[in-house]
Structure formats: C-alpha cells, structure tokens
Design a protein around this nucleic acid. Sequence first.
DNA 1: GGTCCAGGTGTAAAGGATTACATAAAGCAC
DNA 2: GTGCTTTATGTAATCCTTTACACCTGGACC
Lengths: 343, 343
Amino acid sequence: MPLRPHKVTRLKDVAERAGVSTATVSRVLNDHGPASEEARSRVLRAVQDLDYHPNWLARSLRGRRTNTIGLVLPDIENPFFTSLVKGVEQAASAQGWNVIFCNTDEDIRREEALVRTLIDRKIDGLILCPTAGPHDYMAPYMERRLPVVTVNRALRDFPLPAVTSDNLQGAYEATRHLLAKGMRRLALILGTPNLSTTEDRLAGCRRAAQEFGLAPEDLLLTVGHARTAQGFQAAQDCLDMSPRPQAIFAFNNLMAEAALMAIHRRRIRCPADIALIGFDDFRSAAALTPPLTVVEQNPAGIGTRAVKELTRIIATGEATQALHLIPTRLIIRASCGCTAPAA
Amino acid sequence: MPLRPHKVTRLKDVAERAGVSTATVSRVLNDHGPASEEARSRVLRAVQDLDYHPNWLARSLRGRRTNTIGLVLPDIENPFFTSLVKGVEQAASAQGWNVIFCNTDEDIRREEALVRTLIDRKIDGLILCPTAGPHDYMAPYMERRLPVVTVNRALRDFPLPAVTSDNLQGAYEATRHLLAKGMRRLALILGTPNLSTTEDRLAGCRRAAQEFGLAPEDLLLTVGHARTAQGFQAAQDCLDMSPRPQAIFAFNNLMAEAALMAIHRRRIRCPADIALIGFDDFRSAAALTPPLTVVEQNPAGIGTRAVKELTRIIATGEATQALHLIPTRLIIRASCGCTAPAA
DNA sequence: GGTCCAGGTGTAAAGGATTACATAAAGCAC
DNA sequence: GTGCTTTATGTAATCCTTTACACCTGGACC
C-alpha cells in the first residue's frame, strides 16, 4: 500500500462541487475581490464537505510569500537560546508566521550553509545570532536586501538591526554591586573573545571600576570561552591567584555554574570566602547552594522584539541599523554575600 | 526601494545561457536521465556563472516531496526535549532532511492546530510527542497513512510506532537501588497522570517493590504533574508524612530539583535524613548540593532513532506498530546516600 | 433608448520546477 | 540500404493557486 503524502482535494474540486470557477473559489477563500452571497455560501459549503485545505506550496509559489521566517542560533541546548526560540515562536505564530529553526553549533561554515538552505526555501526574513568569525558570505544577501535582524550579538561587518540585552548596563550594575560591598579584587571570566556580548559586558565592568577609582588593569581577567569546561578551568585559575580574588563574575550561565563547582571542589566557602555572580539567570540558579546572584536577561523578550522588528522590515521594506537594547535586572540571591530577600 | 524576497534566476535562464532546454538542465542537475558531456559541462558552467539555486517551492510542488519532517513537542524549555530536538535535527540534516519544529505547551487543541498546519505545509512525515488527552483528531490522518512516529510517550488510541526511554527498567533500577540500601519507606512524586511515561515508571517501581517483598500500597504516592510548582508541593506533602519517608523518587527533572529545594527549605539534610533520586539527568544535577542521583535518559538518542524509523517508513511505505526502547542508566551521585564515584 | 458604472464571474496566464512523450541522430547487424 | 536499439534532446503537460483581463448583467442617469 503506497503512502499518499499529499492531500488530493484541490481547489478545482471545490469549484466543481460548488458549480463555480476556480477564480471565484479563490476570491471567496481569500476574501479578495467581489463575490455574491450565493456563490460565497456554496463555496464555503463545498469546502466543508470536501474538507479542503489549500496547498501551501502552490500558494507560496504563486504569491511569492511564504509567511515563514528563519531562525538561526548557535546552541539550542543553552537555555538562554531555548527561551529565545520560544519567544520568537510565540510572537511569530501570534501573527500567523511560521518559524524554521536551525542550529549552527558555533560553526561559521555551518551557519553559512544553513542560511543558504533557508533562503533557498524562500523564507521571507531571517533572525540570526551570528557565530564568531567573518561574515563575508552575507554580502550577496545584503545586496538582495533580504530582511535580517540579528539577536543577542551585533554584527560589526554589516549594518544590520540588532536586538540584544543591555549587556553594558547589566555588567555595570553587577560590578558596582560588588564594589559597593567594599570588594576590590574582582576576577572576571570572559566569554568568547571578539563577540559583542563579551566586549560590552567587559566595558560595563570597566565603567563601574572606574567610578570606584580602580584602574582598568585592576580587574583580573580570565577567558572561559563561554563553555563549561573552559569556564571551570578559568575559575580554577582565579582561585589560584594570590591573593585570591574576593569575587568572581562569570560572563554566562554555564561558566557561573562551573565556577561554583570549582569553588566547591576546593572546599572554599561561597560567599564567605569568595563571592560569585553570573550573567544570565537559569532554572537551577536558585536551587544551587548558595543560590546564585545573577544578571537576569530576557531572552523571550529579545525574541519577540526581533520578530516585531523583522515583520516591520518585511512589511515596510525599510531596514534601519537600529540597536534595540532589552533591559537586564540584577537578581540578588546569596552567592554575592547578601542575604537573599524573602523567597 | 522594494524588497526582493525571492531570487530571480530561474532554471530557464540557465537553459538559455547554456543553450539547451530546461529539460536538459533539470536532468543534469538531478543526475536523472542521460546527458552528453558537452551539455553537462555547459549547464554546470551556466549554473556557476548565474549563481543559480533551484526554487524549492516549485520543486516540492512538482515533486510531491518536501524532504521536510515536522517535530511537535510539548515544551522546548524542558532540557529533555531540547536535547531531543537536537538529536532529531542532527540525524535529519545528515540525511538531507529539514525539520520544522513546534511547541504545544501541553495543550491538545494547540497540538491539533499545529499538526494541521504542518500537514498543510506538506511535510513528508511527523515526529510527535503527544500531549495528554484524546487524540481523535488523528483519525483522518491515519486513514491518509501519514507517516508518524511518536516519541517519549506512546499513544494508546492509535497503533503508531513509538520511540521512548525504557521507563520501566529505569524506574525499576532506581527503586531497587534504594531498596537494596535497606530503605523501605519510599515516596514517589508522579508525573502527569494517564501518560505512558508516568505509568511505565510506576510499574517499574512496583516491580522492584514486589521483588523486595513490599505490597504495592507500601509505595507512598504523590502527584506532581511534572511541573516545578506542583512538584514542590508534592515534595512538601512527602516531608509532612509521618513517619517521614526514607527516600523520595521524583519522576522528572523539574520535580527532583523542586524536591531538593523543599528539603533545603525545611533544613532537612539530604541524603543523611532523606535520600533523593530524580528521573532524567540535567545540566545542573551534578552542581547541586548534594549532587543528584538520577536515571539518565538519552533524549538525543530517542531523536535520532525516531528520525531513522520515520525515514524508513517514508521510504518503504510500511509502518509498523513497533515500540523502540532506548536504554536508561542510573547515575549514582550523592543524593541517594552513596558517595559518588571519583569525579 | 443609450451610456456608464459596478458587481459578479470565467478564462487563461503566471509562478518555477520535473518528466512523459516524441523526435532525431547515431551505431550496429543483417 | 533497412530496421532496430540506444543516446541525447526538446516540447509540452503537470503540480495547485492566484490574479490580470475580458466579459456579461443590471441598474442609475441623462
């Protein structure tokens, strides 16, 4: 028995059953152009009877519009991006848009291939979180004026609109919080170099340091590359410094968790011996011992905002180079040495 | 300036440039049917020169094949499903398939709407994790012989192939582990009722209990509905029992974490006063205090296996009702009262 | 009664690929 | 030279909708 992958009821069948032409059926269904009450009701009736559903492929081919946007992210397993996906999905489906999602695994070549595939599939627009590396491949698409919005990370090579957290402000507030408690030896575990997120966060730390009269080089820098293993290593490097830093500020969720594990492993007390703050909240942050103080981001908000901006570009045809900053919030739990507010 | 959402180079343009017919171009490009070396090279050259990329919509419309599978899951924010998505994506793209992913939020009506949309979009097959509730809406699709594979949860109403964890065996081993340590008062925090996962896991617990001479009713049951808030409540109920259970077995990751928080909140010591085991490992499980003993599942493996099965069904046209069990593994950390093996 | 307009409808041409079928040329055996 | 097969190619139909255009009818108006 062969599978019948595609439906067989066609617009033509509806037309025949209703005793009208295909044009009339189409006009009724799309509410586009005139149609008598008589014809309208007969068409609707026929659609019901036959359980007709339009062929999306034919419709898109003819209409040059797929109502689909592509979403290309580095790592879906990072809960930050997971929530971003969800935000995008909800905002998109609320407006009748579909989303095709892809994973680059932080591989620029894979990113290029995925974007290519999505464009071949005639997406109407693209939401992209660019991987580190040169984005020359984007040039032809830019000329074609493909609607693109970048999220989380801004791309310097091309003038594209970007929706990101207010990384500078978030890092500034976290750093200021530690400095205000009198700490002066602060160690930072940086994310992937040359990414706008890493640089903006570092700039925020530096601004706070300056306000408290520290020189830029007073901040102790290690590089964790945003991944658990390297974050763990970087945290160990911090703990090996002498004198030991009074606080560690890890630039993402994975590294903050890794840092806490490194601290536990050494049997150093947190926050008594060393304070810890992470960038980006995550589900388990409050369940850890001690509960983690973090800079909360709003990934779903970034997603919905990106959809909003993208659909605007698609509708109006005018792209701006605007940078949309989504606010962050410092969530004070116990790991920074404060007692958490009543839970 | 209007946006040009679609590319303009057509097969016809390639044909003209190469000085051959469209049929020849198509034959060369798809390696389907004969073509002289002369024609072949000229076509390939023209494709290069014009940077031609076939229109996927037209190709799919004509070919009655989209090389796309739909993936419908309850909750992408649960890391279990996140990994499952990743597994599906990798397996699919390795075989040249695309994936459209959707979220039901455990809402059966939304599930129905999403499946409808995917079918309208002419997916070649569907991977579905069914939400609790009656699946009558599936009947017409079954008649149409749409290739479907369910994952994680089996659907009883319809004879569909399913790929799930070996839930019974996993729960059996975890329970046996606790019983073997001499514990007898075991509290279970169950997931959503009427789901095959919940029932299979419960069956596993019962089998172990029976082997150790316990009656089924000796197992202390609470219902957490698989969510954090209700899991927390259920854990509190467990802690309120008197005498207090010697161990809690939470039927998913969220509820295990919630249970640990409830234990901490009461200042009860884990594992000294009460042991804890969770079903499903998650990123932070090892970072918690104490590190959580869990039944590890293999969500990515479930995903790849589902893709394999689905593509087989699409290719051969023959669907079976087979149940594919993916093994689980008990990861012993500290929360069950054992000292974790050297990390 | 003739003109104009509006509303309603149908015919046929896109949209861009694949492919059944027809045709032509070439190779080979007799 | 004839007939048959094989290879290469082109023409046109097909997939299913949307929509430009032409047409027709009937009413309003002069």
